[in-house]
Amino acid sequence: MKKLLLASVFAASTFSPVLMAAEEVNVYSYRQPFLVEPMLKEFTKETGIKVNVKFAKDGLAEKLVQEGEYSPADVVLTVDISRLAELTDKDVVQAVNSDVINGNIPAQYRDKEGEWFGVTTRARAVYSSKDRVGKLPASFDYMDLAKPEYKGKICTRPGKHPYNVSLVSAMIAHHGEADTKQWLEGLKANLARKPQGSDRGQVQAIKEGLCDYSLGNSYYFGQMINDKEQKAWADAVYINFPGQEAFGTHVNISGMAMAKYAPNKDNALKLMEFLSGDVAQKMYAEDNFESPVKPGVAPSELVASWGEYKADTLSLDEIAAHHEAAVKLLDEVKFDL
Rank of each mutant, 00 (worst) to 15 (best):
I253H: 02
L275Q: 11
W233P: 00
V237A: 07
M224T: 02
A189M: 03
V279Y: 05
E286R: 14
T249M: 05
Y219S: 03
N252P: 00
K188D: 02
W233N: 13
Q223E: 14
K207Y: 12
L215V: 08
N226R: 11
V251F: 01
M256Q: 10
R193I: 05
I206F: 10
A205V: 00
F221S: 07
L271T: 11
G216A: 14
G209P: 13
V203Y: 06
G201Y: 13
S198E: 02
C211V: 07
C211M: 12
A285W: 08
N226E: 14
I225S: 11
S214P: 00
C211W: 13
H250V: 09
E208N: 14
A246R: 05
E245Y: 06
F241E: 07
P242C: 05
S254R: 09
Q196L: 03
Y261N: 13
D227A: 11
S214V: 07
Q223V: 10
M283F: 04
I253C: 03
M258W: 01
N226Q: 14
Y238F: 14
D266A: 15
D199N: 15
A257K: 01
V203R: 09
S218K: 06
K194D: 04
K194E: 10
G201K: 10
S214R: 04
Q230G: 01
D212G: 02
M258F: 01
A280N: 11
V251T: 09
S198W: 03
M256V: 12
A192M: 12
M258K: 08
A246Y: 02
Y284K: 00
A234Q: 14
Q223A: 11
W233E: 10
G216L: 10
F274S: 00
W233S: 06
A246W: 05
W233G: 01
G209F: 13
I225N: 13
E245Q: 15
A259G: 15
N190Q: 12
A234G: 08
G255N: 01
N190I: 09
G255Y: 04
D278I: 03
Q202V: 02
L191T: 09
Y261S: 11
S218H: 07
G248L: 04
D212S: 05
G243W: 05
P263K: 12
D212L: 09
M272C: 08
A268E: 04
A285R: 08
R193C: 02
G209D: 13
S214I: 09
K265C: 01
G197Q: 10
